[in-house]
Design a protein around this nucleic acid. Structure first.
Lengths: 163, 163
DNA sequence: GGATTTATCTTGAACATCAAAATTTTCTTG
DNA sequence: CAAGAAAATTTTGATGTTCAAGATAAATCC
């Protein structure tokens, strides 16, 4: 087999999970220890979507790829813990807007700082020239996934039916 | 902010989860639909560790970063489903070796095929020159994580105490 | 204004996970 | 070599996550 192939595959199986685990571990060591990964990401989504006034329950659930029922329970506990609060939309009283409390915003800041440090760490592992091409590569992969969004969620794409 | 910084960060928050989700979705569409991601990875680990005769329960748990109790229950269900079997080590009768059945090996093959297709897809998204540098970048990042393994699992590293 | 659609929440079931206790086997040491 | 310590694994009990399906409430559409 080809060396590039092997390196990419290794990266996928090894580093991917390592990064996720590192992220999770960092959560447990900081203030706000009582947040799961899921909860942290919900808070981050709330903060992000608040900016564009798209912070409705169903939209948050969609961006996180979870059902609205799952989100509802997550919001229940986050509300109990004081990180977010609900607010009924005045125009359409069916929709519930989720808002981050000050505590939620603080947690988001700290989590963003983790991402910041991680990205800086990755950048520092590459020379400026490497970095430029590397980033292009990432963008290409990202574009690829964006355009083929069909894959995930729908009937098995990547692995074609046996012919 | 710097464009490269933003692209790396975007990649981490967007594409990472996309890839994982795609992997999970592909699992559900193929034969062996009754396997969770965790179970699939346990089977993969069993197949891998069998090669080096290091397929003991505790070692598998370690490579998967789960407790031995969690692994025991996972093995219970995988055994019930017919993907793995237990075998007492003859030298040290405390240790249990986990072996993949033919069905387990078949599932592993199919899962490996998913990885294969994913890597090919990524490779095809880049020009040969881009690919070469991209792979170097991945290797640098991987090396970085390998050497700094301390981070995950130990007291909060990446996010330094506020000075 | 009644039927339908939409947004959300609740409930119940299935898993996953961990910590701690229990079990079995091996090692150590006097 | 026997008693106690250590090691590998499994069981148990508790907690958390997730989804599907049903329930509720509000808006929209003839």
């Amino acid at each position: 087999m080809n060396g590039e192939y092997t390196k990419i595959n290794d990266f996928l199986v090894t580093v991917f999970h390592e990064v996720l685990r590192t992220e999770e571990a960092s959560l447990k060591t900081k203030a706000f220890k009582n947040l799961s990964m899921r909860e942290m990401h919900v808070i981050a989504a709330v903060c992000e979507l608040e900016k564009t006034k798209t912070n409705t329950a169903s939209n948050i659930a969609m961006t996180q790829n979870i059902t609205s029922g799952t989100l509802a329970t997550a919001i229940n506990t986050l509300e109990k813990k004081g990180y977010v609060r609900r607010e009924q939309d005045m125009r359409d009283k069916r929709v519930v807007r989720i808002l981050a409390t000050d505590k939620g915003k603080a947690a988001n800041e700290i989590h963003a700082m983790f991402h910041h440090q991680l990205v800086l760490a990755i950048m520092s592992a590459l020379s400026p020239q490497e970095l430029a091409v590397f980033v292009n590569g990432l963008a290409a992969v990202q574009k690829f996934f964006k355009e083929q969004k069909l894959w995930s969620g729908t009937a098995g794409f990547i692995i074609q039916p046996e012919q």
